[in-house]
């Protein structure tokens, strides 16, 4: 599943110091639950993104443990406090060991 996985992040380009901003993330991924069977009746092995994190300048905003009940193309919306200018770092961890990253810079002022 490491092929064609594309993260998308919606974050403001700037904020005032201390402002709480809304972040949205979406990543293309099948999130194969492990509950389904293929045409021959064999179980399709689980293959999901099992963790998502967001940090700002190294400090944690949110850390999500994800289970197979998260829908295809996982979507999250949450809020971050922006104390100063810097980088939001978003990371998705795949069952297969792949790690997908996205960074968004936010200006303050």
């Amino acid at each position: 599943m490491a092929d064609g996985v594309k993260p998308r992040v919606k974050a403001p380009k700037s904020a005032s110091a201390g402002e709480v901003v809304t972040l949205k993330t979406l990543i293309s991924h099948n999130m194969e639950s492990g509950q389904r069977k293929d045409k021959s009746g064999n179980p399709i092995p689980r293959s999901i993104i099992n963790r998502f994190t967001c940090e700002f300048n190294g400090a944690s905003v949110i850390d999500v443990k994800m289970e197979p009940a998260i829908s295809t193309n996982p979507y999250f919306e949450f809020e971050a406090k922006i104390p100063e200018a810097g980088d939001l770092k978003f990371t998705w961890y795949d069952d297969d060991g792949s790690v997908y990253e996205e960074t968004k810079s936010i200006k303050v002022g």
């Binding site: 064609g4 594309k6 998308r8 919606k10 949205k24 979406l26 293309s28 295809t72 193309n73 979507y75």
Partner: peptide
């Protein structure tokens, strides 16, 4: 457009 997962396909 951000909430619409169909836009992932547009990007691809």
């Amino acid at each position: 457009d951000f909430d619409n997962p169909g836009m992932l396909a547009v990007e691809s």
